[in-house]
Design a protein around this nucleic acid. Sequence first.
DNA 1: ATATTAAATGACTAACAGTCAGTAAATGCA
DNA 2: TGCATTTACTGACTGTTAGTCATTTAATAT
Lengths: 226, 226
Amino acid sequence: MGILERKEREKEQRRDDIICAAQKIFFEKGLPSATMDEIAEAAELSKGTLYLYYKSKEDLYLAVAMRGSEIMYQMFVDATPPEKPTLRRITDLGDAYYEFFKQHRDFFRMYQYFENPHFHKQVSPEMFASCKCNDQRTWGVVIGLIQQGINEKLLDADLDPSQAAIILWSIGNSMMRQMDRDDNYWKEQLKVDLESTMRKAYQLVLEGMMTEKGKAQYQQLMLLQE
Amino acid sequence: MGILERKEREKEQRRDDIICAAQKIFFEKGLPSATMDEIAEAAELSKGTLYLYYKSKEDLYLAVAMRGSEIMYQMFVDATPPEKPTLRRITDLGDAYYEFFKQHRDFFRMYQYFENPHFHKQVSPEMFASCKCNDQRTWGVVIGLIQQGINEKLLDADLDPSQAAIILWSIGNSMMRQMDRDDNYWKEQLKVDLESTMRKAYQLVLEGMMTEKGKAQYQQLMLLQE
DNA sequence: ATATTAAATGACTAACAGTCAGTAAATGCA
DNA sequence: TGCATTTACTGACTGTTAGTCATTTAATAT
């Protein structure tokens, strides 16, 4: 009685076909300009079918965005194998975030809508919960790493790992958002290169969070990288 | 021959009526859910008239947002009179940004669309240029203040003022964006209070940028504030 | 009083998200 | 095999919205 299972597989396949088509169109046009008709055509399905699998345009949008989260999570994990020294893992995590931005800028751009309170209201509670769960896992990696740094007395003992994680993430996120918006704007108007600004910011914050032992190791690490 | 001038004034008045109505509706609904018909009704004008004064919904949206920029600029200037000590002016500038967020959250929220590359393309070049000009002026305040700090040997001499300004602004911006998105999400999921996280971040970065002289003054300032 | 110009209107078009009655295909059963 | 039932899919249709433009209304000039 493998029929039910085959059907299940086929259904999953359809969901995937739809997401692939949606990804293509959302990447090209962005949320407001992409149309469900276009997506349906790209998926070689009728529009009605799209709504059998996803409740709304916004839900479908989030489903695509979550693929990006998956990729990001994998990149985070891959960039920080436990055999590396902890401080190295922390700096490499920052680099991995930047790599994600460069390699998957379209995904990165998608998240912006998720940060908009008005967009939130358009999304089904189920999809929202699913995102939250995904998010949680990624935060776990970052926070765990900082906790490790504290345990090894590389980072200040009175540091709150969650707080530190949010601070580091905020810097990268905000900077990359501006790079995406218009890198040239900043170059021309303020004569500033955003990539080096971001590195400077990371460095300032990290050093501020470190113990003396941490700082010493960090200096060595930086020298090695030249 | 005051007729032309009166007409000019009346035209300005209409532009203002429209912005006021648009502000009300955009605040309530956000960009995608607000409709031009609603705005027209609130302005007691027909929709066609709206388009005599603004090229598109997006242009009108930006016109409203620029009012917020004006308020923010004024708050920045008011919070940093030259008679205050420079370090105090710098910390007060950060506080002023946070005050703006708390008092005019609806305006703050509006800027999000401006950070979206796809939204950019919907806006007329004239309106875009107007925004840029407005922006420039505000950056001038922040960068000037940091330059002053460097001149007074409170901040590191090798610091690039534009870079430093972007770093400080990024932190505030990113944190407040998250507070706006859903303050409780962070409290519940990560047990973190975003306001204190933001203060911690500002402190880390500022101290990282300071000379020894600056740090000494900063400590005193902090003690005074308790 | 009349002509000319400027301002404002709202019915109209095209495009879109989302729906749903109907069709086609697959499966279960005799 | 043929028929009944369930499941998957369709695309024409509805309601809504941004933006347009021929027409009307009001103000000014002669």
